[in-house]
Design a protein around this nucleic acid. Structure first.
Lengths: 198, 198
DNA sequence: GGAGTAAACGGACCGTAGTCCGCTTATATT
DNA sequence: AATATAAGCGGACTACGGTCCGTTTACTCC
């Protein structure tokens, strides 16, 4: 039986495994900065062209490396237990969403940063569209009836920009808790404003 | 009389003029993308090392090129006529501030983008600290008593991130007016929330 | 098994930002 | 005017991300 999508050639599959393994090794040793495309190719015993054929760009590679944890994060806010997942009041879910994003950025810092370096900008990340829709939905449920909910949600998400968060943490010593509290204040005020004008 | 700060050597001054002139020429011809450090050095008839000695980095050069217009912008919101400058209600000034920033980013698009590429991140831009303080002040005057006004102001400014704005405009066809309206809605809701909890 | 073919491969190559260091020159001092 | 010196200069050099294209190889069909 011929597969609908052409099957991956065996050498391609083998090289993908090698590359992913080598990438994780390099990062474990020297952080994301130590992962250059040349070194990766060498470490994996593969030509440089192969690396780019596989992942498109350095940012694409980082995205692939983050894929699992990103999927897990998405599953948690889409289907997981409250307050992050469904079942809790929208404001609580919004607050939890921000706190979890901050924790996520903190955990994978450099990787997330490097993943955002795609030439077409860090707003092309497919996941970003999902976060936007999620925040948009929670805002609407929270009574924040915006004429342009998509833009409003985008504004809120811009607030969680990894570069900004990491800059505040690393250069200004701001703690994760303070960032989460600031996010909480922001979204709470929005919901309050919706209640006030009802 | 010896100047307090060592005077600039005459050849250095001459080269600075040459470089700035050449930079504006290159940008006029082919946009910011056409300004590479090698080309700039060649066009100005100086060595590459001189370019970097003068401006530190490509981002530093862009910052220098933007210096005048940035100073003008600052003067307008600090001392200019209302509603941007002092004299108008804080909410009106906030709204105007966002609208003007958006217009600014739109006008100098690529330059602003390139200026944010500094290795140490686009939050080191000295001007950013000023915008933050300004927004912080307007929030306080508007009754938004935040436990961490600095972070709250930073969040709002993150919303005006040039990369985000330009992405929305260029890739999604969002107009300046819609962006300004979204900003207006955001800050208005914050002020409303302050009034509601008074 | 052999031939045909499209996918995958590899590494030389390019353009870029940024560094380094031996040389040059403007300026201050006498 | 001669000298000293530190600021300035230039361009070869490096590291990096990304592209290109001639060559190799896994799979398919007979």
């Amino acid at each position: 039986m011929t597969p609908v999508t052409a099957a991956e050639r065996s050498d391609a599959a083998r090289n993908r495994e090698r590359l992913l393994l080598a990438a994780r090794e390099l990062i474990e040793q020297g952080g994301a900065a130590a992962l250059t495309m040349d070194r990766l190719a060498e470490q994996a015993g593969v030509g440089k062209g192969t690396v780019f054929r596989r992942f498109g760009s350095r940012a694409g590679l980082m995205l692939t490396l983050l894929n699992d944890s990103e999927a897990a994060f998405q599953a948690r806010f889409l289907f997981g237990p409250p307050p992050l997942g469904p079942g809790a009041p929208p404001l609580d879910r919004l607050i939890a969403f921000g706190a979890e994003r901050i924790a996520y950025v903190l955990e994978f810092g450099d990787l997330v940063l490097a993943a955002g370096d795609a030439s077409r900008g860090r707003f092309e990340v497919p996941a970003a569209a999902l976060w936007n829709r999620h925040v948009e939905m929670l805002l609407r449920e929270g009574g924040v009836d915006s004429p342009e909910p998509w833009l409003m949600a985008g504004s809120l998400n811009a607030t969680l920009d990894p570069e900004r968060l990491l800059h505040l943490i690393r250069e200004h010593g701001v703690t994760r808790e303070r960032l989460a509290a600031s996010w909480r204040e922001l979204v709470t005020r929005l919901v309050i404003s919706a209640e006030a004008t009802r």
